[in-house]
């Protein structure tokens, strides 16, 4: 074989995606959680100007993609991006770059530091080969769930369990009005009555409480597993609640190990389809071994959403 014109090591994790037309590739950049320093953004702009088409594409998973890059420029592109520590992302059957909302530093809805979680997962698990198919992780800071946890292979969503100090309550009624789930109402003693079965752990009561009578009893991630979109969508289902931020990487690693093992020989199949095949009990019990205090008693299989014709009951 002739001496390669480019450093093939750069291609190992993927991220260089063939375009229409000879010699041209899209270069997908690694932007965990979608946060980007302005210095890095300037460098990317300069590289795109020099080697690209004159525009970039913002991918739906928070990446910046350089368009129309000639493969003979790969080494130069990688080197110049490296001046601002910008790396290339992945594609194929690997753990992808995690997405995240803005988190809790400046967004008043945010309950947990999703940016920190996304960075940690990116550092420790990015590019891990699954052996089967892609593996997507996202972090949402609150139950608004903008990153759409249920359509990721493993989706995390921030949650907080509220606790009332009745002595500190001034009976203002703001919490009951703020609770859109109907979990809070004002009782006959003019103090809020909490219906835990209706609570989705959004923390709106804590946020509005003027005296701090409502506070966080515990905080962490609600975890949904087995979702995906694409040609045959699946909605992921609930496996754990209040998983602490510092256990996130371990949690994903257990799911990943189960997937790698159970999908053996299945070919290019996503986690959700393996759960349907193996039964959710298998994954839930595997997780229970390491996370007994967080996993739910039982769950349901990923839910099939019919988006293609023929719809059930119709003829092709």
């Amino acid at each position: 074989m002739a001496e390669p014109k480019i450093d093939l090591k750069n291609l190992k994790a993927g991220g260089f995606i063939k375009e229409r037309g000879k010699d041209l590739f899209t270069v997908r950049l690694r932007v965990p959680g979608g946060r980007m320093s302005v210095d890095r953004l300037s460098k990317i702009a300069a590289v795109a100007q020099k080697y690209g088409k004159g525009y970039v594409h913002l991918s739906v998973r928070q990446s910046i993609e350089l368009i129309n890059i000639n493969f003979s420029d790969f080494d130069a592109v990688v080197a110049e991006l490296g001046e601002e520590q910008q790396k290339v992302a992945s594609c194929g059957a690997r753990v992808r770059v995690p997405t995240a909302c803005g988190g809790c530093e400046y967004n008043p809805n945010g309950l947990v530091d999703t940016q920190k979680s996304a960075l940690e997962v990116d550092q420790k698990l990015f590019g891990t080969a699954t052996g089967h198919h892609k593996f997507k992780v996202c972090f949402a800071g609150c139950p608004f769930d903008c990153p759409k946890s249920a359509i990721n292979d493993v989706g995390f969503q921030g949650a907080v369990w509220p606790k009332l100090d009745a002595d500190g309550c001034i009976s203002c009624g703001l919490c009951a009005k703020s609770c859109t789930e109907g979990a809070l109402s004002m009782g006959t003693d003019n103090k809020p009555v909490f219906d835990a079965a209706k609570c989705i752990y959004c923390g709106d009561c804590i946020k509005v409480c003027p005296t701090g009578a409502w506070s966080a009893e515990k905080k962490g991630y609600t975890v949904r597993i087995g979702g995906k979109w694409g040609r045959q969508p699946l909605v992921g289902t609930l496996y754990a609640t209040f998983v602490p931020e510092e256990r996130v990487v371990d949690f994903i690693a257990v799911v990943l190990a189960w997937y790698q093992e159970k999908a053996e020989g299945a070919g290019r199949v996503r986690l959700g389809d393996i759960i349907i095949r193996e039964g959710w009990q298998s994954l839930l019990e595997r997780l229970r071994a390491d996370f007994p205090e967080y996993v739910v008693q039982e769950t349901i299989a990923p839910q099939i959403i019919q988006t293609q014709l023929p719809l059930p009951g119709q003829q092709a």
Partner: peptide, 20 residues
């Protein structure tokens, strides 16, 4: 409005007293 405005005013450092 009744959900957002009180919370935002609390964030600005004002003391919420009641809602009727």
């Amino acid at each position: 409005p009744v959900k957002n405005v009180p919370r935002s005013l609390k964030d600005e450092g004002h003391k919420l007293l009641g809602l009727q």
